[in-house]
Simulated assay, not measured.
Amino acid sequence: MEQLKLVAVSAGLSSPSSTRLLADRLAEAAQERLAEQDRKVEVEVIELRDLATAIANNLVTGFPSPTLGAAIDAVTKADGVIAVSPIFTASYSGLFKSFFDLVDPQALTGKPVLVAATGGTARHSLALDHALRPLFAYLRALVVPTAVYAASEDWGSSGDEYTEGLPARIRRAGGELAELMASRPARDESTDEPGEYERQLADLRFD
């Protein structure tokens, strides 16, 4: 059985950052669920803060640096993507959006994507549904049902009788991503052309 590739994109600006920590925890949860199904997965984490200058140069010149090109290629060829952004002014960061603006609009068609975000207060959690989810829905990705938002007070919290704690939400979202990755039709590695399933989804785009 082929090895799957999972790519986590973290748009955290500090080092270390809670955004990177959340990306790592989600990747671990997906990896654990896949291991339960005897599926091997290679995990790669892309730190956008290290590519910020290259992203800006690509936007104005139209040409990616080798490192940025490799990051874009990794996302394009992944079997599943975890996309995590800090929330600024009730939306994803400019760095996060700029990176995905450079990814081919067809590249995420039919690809499982888990969206997640971090912020200082729970009030920004709605950004998952009014900003991140619509972005990837527009790109025709298969957005995982459970999105994960982590406010500062969520770390170390086990939740209460009304709300799941962060660890439980991470496990659920990671498990959903793993299920979508495991059930996704194998891609022909001999060509970069999308399969019939991806082409059919792409035909549904309305620009």
Results as ranks from 00 to 15, higher is better:
residue 172 R to Y: 00
residue 83 A to P: 01
residue 94 G to W: 05
residue 170 I to V: 14
residue 24 D to Q: 08
residue 118 T to N: 12
residue 156 G to D: 02
residue 71 A to H: 10
residue 5 K to S: 15
residue 128 L to Y: 00
residue 97 K to M: 13
residue 115 V to H: 01
residue 154 D to R: 07
residue 46 I to D: 03
residue 34 L to T: 11
residue 137 A to D: 14
residue 46 I to G: 02
residue 132 L to S: 02
residue 138 Y to Q: 15
residue 73 D to H: 11
residue 166 L to H: 13
residue 156 G to M: 03
residue 135 L to R: 10
residue 164 E to I: 04
residue 191 T to K: 05
residue 148 V to P: 00
residue 50 D to L: 09
residue 117 A to F: 13
residue 43 V to M: 04
residue 172 R to S: 07
residue 94 G to E: 06
residue 195 G to T: 04
residue 123 R to W: 11
residue 45 V to L: 13
residue 64 P to E: 13
residue 183 S to H: 08
residue 13 L to G: 10
residue 176 E to H: 12
residue 56 A to W: 00
residue 6 L to P: 10
residue 90 A to Q: 13
residue 35 A to G: 15
residue 116 A to H: 08
residue 125 S to L: 04
residue 165 G to H: 12
residue 148 V to W: 01
residue 120 G to V: 10
residue 101 D to A: 10
residue 194 P to I: 11
residue 37 Q to P: 06
residue 147 A to D: 05
residue 132 L to F: 05
residue 18 S to G: 09
residue 39 R to C: 04
residue 88 F to C: 07
residue 188 D to Y: 02
residue 82 I to Y: 02
residue 23 A to P: 02
residue 145 P to M: 08
residue 63 F to A: 14
residue 114 L to F: 02
residue 10 S to G: 11
residue 121 T to R: 04
residue 148 V to A: 00
residue 84 V to W: 01
residue 170 I to K: 09
residue 87 I to C: 09
residue 22 L to N: 02
residue 17 S to N: 07
residue 3 Q to P: 11
residue 89 T to F: 15
residue 25 R to F: 02
residue 183 S to K: 11
residue 78 A to F: 01
residue 195 G to Y: 06
residue 15 S to H: 15
residue 121 T to I: 09
residue 105 P to C: 11
residue 185 P to F: 05
residue 7 V to F: 13
residue 189 E to Q: 14
residue 190 S to N: 15
residue 48 L to F: 02
residue 19 T to M: 04
residue 179 E to R: 07
residue 24 D to P: 00
residue 65 S to F: 02
residue 133 R to E: 07
residue 13 L to S: 09
residue 88 F to R: 13
residue 30 A to T: 15
residue 50 D to F: 06
residue 48 L to P: 01
residue 189 E to Y: 08
residue 196 E to F: 12
residue 96 F to M: 05
residue 65 S to W: 01
residue 51 L to D: 00
residue 9 V to I: 06
residue 57 N to G: 13
residue 1 M to S: 12
residue 39 R to G: 01
residue 187 R to P: 03
residue 43 V to T: 10
residue 81 V to T: 08
residue 115 V to G: 03
residue 88 F to P: 04
residue 190 S to E: 14
residue 54 A to R: 10
residue 69 G to E: 01
residue 8 A to T: 06
residue 85 S to E: 09
residue 4 L to C: 04
residue 119 G to M: 09
residue 121 T to H: 07
residue 131 A to E: 07
residue 12 G to P: 06
residue 61 T to W: 02
residue 92 Y to C: 05
residue 39 R to P: 00
residue 111 K to Q: 08
residue 36 E to G: 15
residue 170 I to F: 03
